[in-house]
């Protein structure tokens, strides 16, 4: 188990940020905070999805994205986006040891999704120690 713990207040704060995101875009149906080494920490899913498996996978995906960027001589990987026929999965680092993943349907506006996610990360980063 991860030693990264979020207090009850912290979890409530995260949930409120997740709710805001889902309100701003009804295409968003899943938000997950996990650790960089693949443990799930807190989530809000509108449909059933395997959080622990997604947490491990998103840590791999983000690490690969960041490594590919370095190999291609590009700096500071901001997001890794998986674009699919019926939706998007967007993931990015949240502080040093956490990862934020946003799962949205295809009707999402990708620019909007970026903006919602970026502002959520700022709010969360400020609050989470």
């Amino acid at each position: 188990m991860s030693q990264v713990r979020i207090s009850e207040n912290g979890a409530q704060f995260c949930q409120s940020v997740f709710d805001d995101m889902m309100t701003q875009s009804d295409a968003v149906y899943g938000v997950l905070i996990s650790t960089v080494d693949g443990h799930d920490v807190v989530k809000c899913f509108k449909q059933d999805m395997p959080a622990s498996k997604l947490a491990a996978m998103m840590s791999s995906v983000l690490a690969l994205g960041e490594t590919v960027a370095i190999e291609a001589d590009q700096q500071q990987c901001r997001y890794v986006i998986v674009e699919n026929s019926n939706g998007y999965i967007l993931t990015l680092r949240l502080k040093e040891k956490l990862v934020l993943t946003v799962i949205a349907r295809a009707n999402a506006n990708l620019g909007m999704l970026h903006s919602i996610t970026r502002s959520a990360v700022e709010k969360l980063a400020e609050k989470l120690k």
Partner: peptide, 17 residues
């Protein structure tokens, strides 16, 4: 990436992909 679980007692970083 950084290890955040009990493995951190053994090593600071772990391969995730």
């Amino acid at each position: 990436t950084a290890t955040t679980d009990e493995l951190s007692e053994v090593k600071e970083q772990t391969t995730v992909a």
